[in-house]
Simulated assay, not measured.
Amino acid sequence: MSSNLPVRLALTLGANIGAFAIYFGIAKYGVADQSSLAQSVLERLQDDPAGLLIRVEDLSGQLLTVGAAAIGIAFVLSVIWLILVETNPPVGDASARAKRQPWAGLLVVTVLASAGAGWALLINAPIAEQLASGVTITGTAAAVALAVVGYWLGTGLGAPRSCKVAVPGFGG
């Protein structure tokens, strides 16, 4: 059996790049603006537009770092699942369905690791003190949600035809 692993990995990479592109749009054009800064920061910098711009750019950079970390984790875990399927291919439909357990386990790891990245890089970061309430949770939630989408699409698009039943929504 010839391996199409490079093609599958490219599909997985494409799915995760797409998820990051969506996150980029949300972070850069939806969340990272002056309204996301704490009122005390806005009052302190009201006469310093350059200072405000720097704070908004800092926020944008931190949000993009969280998104890159979360979706990068999803990509790595989807590659691990694809390699697992490649090295131990299913024999029959029951064997392919059995691949759903490691798929679900890696999905849980994706959620936990992405949430951990959001906590470490945004919620617990020094920049959190300068942000309006809810911004850290919104940024982290969006990163986790799009990491899950990246993992799901990456594994679904990259799974061999015989193993698509292991990925919910892609099976026959």
Results as ranks from 00 to 15, higher is better:
residue 2 S to I: 11
residue 2 S to F: 15
residue 3 S to A: 09
residue 3 S to C: 02
residue 4 N to W: 12
residue 5 L to S: 06
residue 6 P to C: 13
residue 10 A to G: 12
residue 13 L to S: 13
residue 14 G to A: 14
residue 14 G to S: 15
residue 15 A to P: 08
residue 15 A to N: 08
residue 16 N to Q: 10
residue 17 I to G: 08
residue 19 A to K: 00
residue 20 F to V: 04
residue 22 I to R: 00
residue 24 F to P: 11
residue 24 F to H: 13
residue 25 G to H: 02
residue 27 A to K: 08
residue 29 Y to P: 05
residue 30 G to A: 03
residue 31 V to A: 06
residue 34 Q to E: 15
residue 37 L to R: 14
residue 39 Q to G: 03
residue 39 Q to V: 09
residue 39 Q to T: 14
residue 41 V to M: 13
residue 42 L to P: 13
residue 42 L to M: 15
residue 42 L to I: 14
residue 42 L to T: 12
residue 43 E to K: 10
residue 43 E to T: 14
residue 44 R to H: 14
residue 46 Q to A: 11
residue 47 D to N: 13
residue 48 D to V: 10
residue 49 P to R: 06
residue 49 P to I: 11
residue 52 L to H: 08
residue 52 L to T: 12
residue 53 L to Y: 04
residue 53 L to G: 07
residue 54 I to G: 08
residue 55 R to P: 08
residue 55 R to S: 14
residue 55 R to T: 12
residue 56 V to S: 13
residue 59 L to K: 11
residue 60 S to C: 14
residue 62 Q to D: 07
residue 64 L to P: 05
residue 67 G to T: 08
residue 69 A to V: 13
residue 75 F to T: 09
residue 75 F to V: 00
residue 75 F to H: 10
residue 75 F to S: 07
residue 76 V to I: 15
residue 76 V to P: 00
residue 78 S to D: 07
residue 83 I to D: 05
residue 85 V to W: 05
residue 91 V to Y: 14
residue 93 D to R: 15
residue 95 S to W: 12
residue 95 S to I: 08
residue 96 A to Q: 07
residue 96 A to C: 15
residue 99 K to E: 07
residue 101 Q to H: 01
residue 102 P to S: 08
residue 103 W to D: 01
residue 104 A to E: 03
residue 110 T to L: 03
residue 113 A to P: 01
residue 113 A to Y: 01
residue 113 A to S: 09
residue 113 A to K: 01
residue 114 S to L: 12
residue 117 A to R: 04
residue 117 A to L: 04
residue 119 W to C: 00
residue 119 W to S: 09
residue 120 A to S: 06
residue 121 L to D: 04
residue 122 L to T: 05
residue 122 L to N: 01
residue 123 I to K: 01
residue 124 N to H: 05
residue 125 A to S: 12
residue 129 E to I: 07
residue 129 E to D: 15
residue 131 L to M: 11
residue 135 V to K: 04
residue 136 T to D: 00
residue 137 I to G: 07
residue 138 T to N: 02
residue 139 G to Q: 04
residue 141 A to W: 01
residue 142 A to T: 10
residue 145 A to N: 05
residue 145 A to M: 07
residue 146 L to W: 12
residue 146 L to A: 03
residue 147 A to S: 06
residue 149 V to D: 02
residue 149 V to G: 01
residue 151 Y to M: 04
residue 152 W to R: 04
residue 152 W to Q: 06
residue 153 L to I: 10
residue 154 G to M: 11
residue 154 G to T: 05
residue 156 G to S: 04
residue 156 G to T: 05
residue 157 L to M: 15
residue 158 G to L: 09
residue 161 R to W: 12
residue 162 S to Y: 05
residue 163 C to Y: 07
residue 164 K to Q: 14
residue 164 K to C: 06
residue 164 K to F: 05
residue 165 V to G: 02
residue 165 V to R: 07
residue 166 A to H: 07
residue 167 V to T: 03
residue 168 P to H: 06
residue 168 P to A: 09
residue 168 P to K: 03
residue 169 G to C: 06
residue 169 G to P: 01
residue 170 F to N: 01
residue 171 G to Y: 09
residue 172 G to C: 01
